[in-house]
Computed example of a mutant assay.
Amino acid sequence: MIAIYNTHMNDVLMLIVGDNQGEKLAATRKNNVARVTRQDTGEVVAWNFFEATALFPVNGNGQVSLSDADVAHLNTEMKAAGFEEQLMNDQEPKFVVGEIVEMMAHPDSDHLNIAQVTIGHDQVVQIVAGAPNARVGMKTIVVLPGAMMPNGALIFAGQLRGVPSFGMMASPRELALPNAPQKRGIIELSPSEVPGTAFSPSQHWHK
């Protein structure tokens, strides 16, 4: 779940809970709560809460963090408005250290690879990527589904040329790091970094 509050949106808190994949959307509003669904599947992809700061203080502009108490308050508002769904607060880090443990060429591409990446104890994700510097044993930063990139792009699980991919491995430029090189290639971390560690610019970038 990605929480976005923009001061240009007239005090609306938007929660992104699914990928619309460019499909047309429909909205159902009850009181100050709106449910946004895909027209083709009916899947809920977002919730909008109008007059959000009347519910609780919202700190920040753009992507914001919500406490468990905030989400509980939103669930109360949804129920009062007549919606049956409930939100789950996901506070797990979405930018983490990963280690490439396996890699093979994509069968339908001359530049993509299918990588198995460890992101913590007994946690391995498959990521399809075209980074020219990716290799087995490399430590890098993995961006998991449910993340919002510095440029505003939202990351979801998907497929690249028919192969499932659960996130991305990021370059310094994509992470908006200072003095990031403009050439292609994912960020390379020290071999001593521990998979699953939350990304910290001060810890993981020293240029």
Rank of each mutant, 00 (worst) to 15 (best):
N20I: 04
V71C: 10
A105Q: 14
V12W: 10
A170M: 04
A27H: 12
H111M: 10
A115W: 02
T76G: 14
F199M: 05
V125Y: 10
A153F: 12
E99Y: 09
H73W: 12
E23C: 06
A52V: 00
V96K: 00
P195S: 08
A105F: 13
V142N: 00
H111A: 08
V101S: 07
D90S: 11
I155H: 02
V128A: 08
I141A: 05
L87Y: 08
S202A: 15
L15Y: 11
V64G: 09
P201M: 11
R184I: 07
G185E: 07
N32R: 15
V36P: 02
I16E: 05
P107V: 04
P150A: 03
L25G: 07
N10Y: 14
I4S: 03
T28M: 12
G42N: 07
S192T: 10
T41F: 07
K24S: 13
N48W: 12
V58Y: 12
K30E: 07
A26P: 02
E188S: 07
S200V: 03
Q86C: 14
I119H: 03
N32K: 15
W47S: 00
G196S: 07
D19Y: 12
A176W: 07
E174S: 04
A157F: 10
W47E: 00
M78L: 14
M149A: 09
N6E: 13
N32V: 02
D110C: 05
Q21R: 15
K30N: 09
I127L: 05
H106A: 04
R35F: 09
L160I: 04
L74Q: 03
D11G: 05
K94I: 02
A129N: 12
L66T: 01
M78D: 01
M1N: 02
E193R: 14
V194P: 08
D90C: 11
V117D: 01
V45L: 06
N133W: 14
N59T: 15
Q159H: 11
M88P: 00
V117T: 01
P164M: 08
A170E: 02
E99S: 08
A80M: 11
V64S: 07
K30H: 14
H121G: 06
M168Q: 04
D122W: 11
E85W: 12
R173S: 10
G152N: 11
F49I: 01
E85V: 04
M1G: 03
T197H: 06
N48K: 12
M78F: 10
N6L: 14
W47G: 00
R173G: 01
E23S: 12
K24R: 15
L154D: 00
F49E: 00
A81P: 01
A26V: 05
K94H: 09
A153L: 13
E43S: 05
